[in-house]
């Protein structure tokens, strides 16, 4: 499968603070990839690099085979960009913003896709965007991207400021659109539950590095939460190979791992932790994220 996005050995600093080093990832065509990470791990930095608004300290990114720093502006026709907070030109109305954007995408602009969505919102064509709620603005932004009909969508924290209803509406519309039209999507969100309904693949970032990159189905099938009882005073080392963030709350030890229960049991024993019988549970994407990155 052709890679739409290819990022190699990205390293970036803000001042002397390292954001990440040697970050590499690809996004194949037709896949919806979610970038998950705690605040400050570099999600928005990555989006900014990808959308050409930040020159990384080292490394390079290409989209459709072209380096983004030297990309032909015409190629941006094929990339839809959603800015954090669904920002759009506040001084325009529903009608004016459609007229403005359509001029830049001759031959590919799908006016009806935009107005279909606006009809569902029940907003008047003359309504100014500055007078709309964040949820309504999110639909305007999505409608404009759908009308642009790009091959790649880059969405920065699409759930910011949306209530559960609008988040669900956004996710369902976006997934249906992306899947039915074979679009590639690269997105971030701080609400992981939404991502589970939407994304095919995920990258989980920790400070300075990628923890995992794999299909969500595979992640949820192979990662388990293990719990067992331990003596109240049991000391649990933080770094047991293969176990993510083992921690105890009173007499319960909890950890996440891709290993089998027998293997986890063996490693706890080897680490000298007296423990009761292990319980393995399937996890949601949010559990997996917290399990892999830790609660703190």
């Amino acid at each position: 499968m052709e890679n739409i996005i290819e990022c190699k050995n990205l390293t970036h600093y803000y001042g002397k603070r390292l954001i990440y080093r040697d970050l590499s990832f690809d996004v194949p065509q037709g896949r919806i990839l979610g970038l998950l990470g705690k605040n400050g791990t570099g999600k928005t930095t990555t989006i900014n690099i990808l959308s050409g608004y930040l020159r990384p300290h080292a490394g390079e990114c290409s989209i459709f085979g072209q380096n983004i720093r030297t990309m032909d502006p015409a190629l941006r026709r094929r990339i839809g960009l959603l800015i954090e907070g669904h920002v759009q030109y506040q001084f325009m109305t529903i009608e004016q913003i459609e007229r403005f954007y359509s001029a830049f995408y001759p031959g590919q602009w799908r006016r009806e896709a935009y107005y279909d969505l606006m009809e569902k919102l029940k907003v008047a064509p003359g309504q100014r965007i500055s007078r709309m709620s964040c949820g309504q603005r999110s639909q305007v932004a999505l409608g404009l991207i759908m009308a642009q009909n790009p091959d790649l969508l880059v969405l920065d924290d699409f759930s910011l400021g949306l209530d559960p209803g609008y988040r669900r509406l956004f996710v369902d519309y976006l997934r249906d659109y992306a899947k039915s039209e074979n679009k590639t999507v690269f997105l971030t969100s701080h609400i992981i539950q939404d991502m589970e309904r939407l994304i095919d693949d995920c990258i989980v970032m920790d400070y300075g590095r990628i923890l995992i990159q794999q299909p969500v189905d595979e992640l949820l099938a192979t990662l388990h939460r293990y719990t067992c009882t331990v003596p109240e005073s049991a000391a649990v080392p933080a770094d047991i190979d293969g176990l993510y963030h083992p921690q105890t709350i009173r007499t319960t030890l909890e950890t996440h791992s891709f290993l089998t229960a027998q293997e986890v049991d063996r490693r706890l024993t080897e680490a000298g932790i007296p423990h009761g019988e292990l319980t393995a549970e399937r996890v949601t994407l949010e559990d997996a994220f917290i399990g892999l990155t830790g609660k703190y």
Partner: peptide
Amino acid sequence: YHKCLKLTLHLPYKP
């Protein structure tokens, strides 16, 4: 405002 210029410079036109 909220870095709206990103939208403008993302349009398929030389910055």
